[in-house]
């Protein structure tokens, strides 16, 4: 049994919150730069260049790249040989978020509930998903999820007869409807299978996945590429002003499902696709 201290979790999460909101992940920046070099719309190219310049300013000045520093989503994988000492893991993650958002001058965008809407003043609670895995490490994948893009996300429970064609049609529809609202270029996270809540979680995992990750499932890899092409052919472009870069990438995650269902979820992420992984 390995012991991890509560306070170490707090410190790591705090640092990660500040880093991820000020420092655009390398995989995302590299992808935007690649797309900017390929873009042929004049205003579109300029938009991508402004986005790159913004990321550089944010990194150099250590200030948030986007004012919507999001709601924190945390995927925690707990090795089953790990013991957390000194308090509850959930509390440690939330305390790290609170300290990071306060000390890092990040925007506190979380309200206590959707009815009373009182700001919690420290951006907590985070949305935490736990998974028990092998080993003696604690891995936290954190994302700062803005709601301009979150609000454009959709989920649909299809019957199996809808098939992959039905799913594709739905994905294209959702992305098109989102249009300029979620600050394109976008990262599209798609979940296929599972059940109602699982498919949304898959879509979220896909939306915050590293952009240089190559899907090991060849069928999905081909589908990701096909959808990316189809979407970019719409010509909506960066910021919706016209161009070939409406999405940076489509990522798909899949899980087993029921004989009677084909759940599909589309979680939209923006070019500020902030994600970070910490291993304790």
């Amino acid at each position: 049994m390995r012991t991890i201290n509560y306070q170490d979790v707090v410190e790591q999460v705090k640092g990660a919150c500040i880093r991820m909101t000020c420092d655009l992940p390398h995989d995302v920046q590299a992808m935007i730069e690649k797309k900017a070099s390929e873009e042929d719309g004049k205003l579109a190219k300029e938009m991508l260049n402004i986005i790159i310049e913004n990321a550089n300013i944010a990194r150099n000045e250590q200030r948030p790249m986007c004012q919507d520093t999001g709601m924190v989503v945390c995927f925690a994988s707990i090795g089953q040989d790990v013991h957390i000492e000194g308090g509850l893991l959930t509390d440690a993650i939330n305390e790290g978020v609170a300290q990071g958002y306060t000390e890092g001058y990040l925007r506190k965008s979380v309200v206590n509930n959707p009815l009373d809407r009182v700001n919690t003043l420290n951006n907590t609670p985070a949305i935490i998903h736990y998974d028990i895995v092998e080993g003696d490490k604690l891995t936290l994948v954190l994302a700062a999820k803005g709601f301009g893009s979150e609000n454009m996300s959709q989920l649909k429970m299809f019957p199996p007869a809808a098939g992959i064609e039905g799913a594709k049609e739905f994905i294209l529809k959702v992305v098109k409807e989102a249009g300029p609202n979620p600050c394109p270029p976008l990262v599209i996270g798609v979940g296929l299978g599972g059940d109602f809540e699982m498919v949304a979680k898959l879509a979220k995992q896909a939306a915050i996945r590293n952009l240089d990750y190559v899907n090991p499932n060849e069928k999905l890899l081909a589908l990701e590429k096909e959808l990316e092409e189809e979407i970019n052919k719409m010509g909506i472009g960066p910021q919706g002003f016209g161009g070939k870069t409406f999405v940076l990438k489509v990522n798909i995650e899949m899980f087993a499902t029921h004989i009677a269902g084909l759940p599909v979820a589309v979680n939209i992420n923006c070019h500020a696709a902030r994600h970070i992984k910490v291993v304790l």
Partner: peptide, 11 residues
């Protein structure tokens, strides 16, 4: 429109 997400540059 201002460039969505270009918040540091705009700031």
């Amino acid at each position: 429109a201002a460039v969505g997400g270009a918040a540091a540059l705009i700031g």
